[in-house]
Write a protein that binds this DNA or RNA. Structure first.
Lengths: 83, 83
DNA sequence: ACAATTTATGATCCAGGGGTCATATGGAGT
DNA sequence: ACTCCATATGACCCCTGGATCATAAATTGT
């Protein structure tokens, strides 16, 4: 499972999916990440302007990692342009 | 070129490297991204708490992309990364 | 050394994120 | 229907990132 993240909305989706894949509630994730449930709700719904560190806390708790790559290669992932 | 990003400092490094790889000055990157040179300076030096949207602006201008992946593929351990 | 450019820093102002609590809405189960 | 849990939302305050301008420091070129 690989998420291309270009917007806050993308990020929210990815986080929600990852959380559900682990059968965690927002409250549980809040407890493990130190980010409040209310804040997680906002982020999952794509509220823009989230702070980086909050995202790092979340993805660390969800056992995800962020990779920064160049965007020229043809990815051939088949998931481009879905949204 | 692939950057694993876990902290704001990582992000700053990656952005600086990408910028230099393209022979851009902070001022030029500022002009292309809409983010101010002063802000870019802070971010490249790992100032925490940067906003997501600012990062998106920067990586878009630098032709980079963010990927969110799982760190360890759940069910079995130590088998990731074979391919 | 000097001048020019690049990067960093310092200050002010403002908008918005997140902590925090309370509450409302929604969904699953009985 | 009514609980119980999950998620969303509203309100408040505080804090800080970013815009903005000015300037200091560092780097580069000659």
């Amino acid at each position: 499972m690989k998420h291309l993240v270009r917007t806050s909305r993308n990020l929210g989706h990815a986080i929600r999916q990852a959380r559900k894949a682990k059968n965690l509630t927002q409250k549980e994730l809040a407890a493990m990440s130190g980010v409040w449930q209310e804040t997680i709700s906002k982020i999952e719904n794509g509220s823009g302007g989230t702070k980086l560190e909050t995202v790092f806390d979340l993805i660390a708790a969800l056992d995800l990692e962020i990779t920064l790559t160049e965007r020229s290669k043809g990815t051939s992932d088949g998931l481009e342009g879905i949204f």
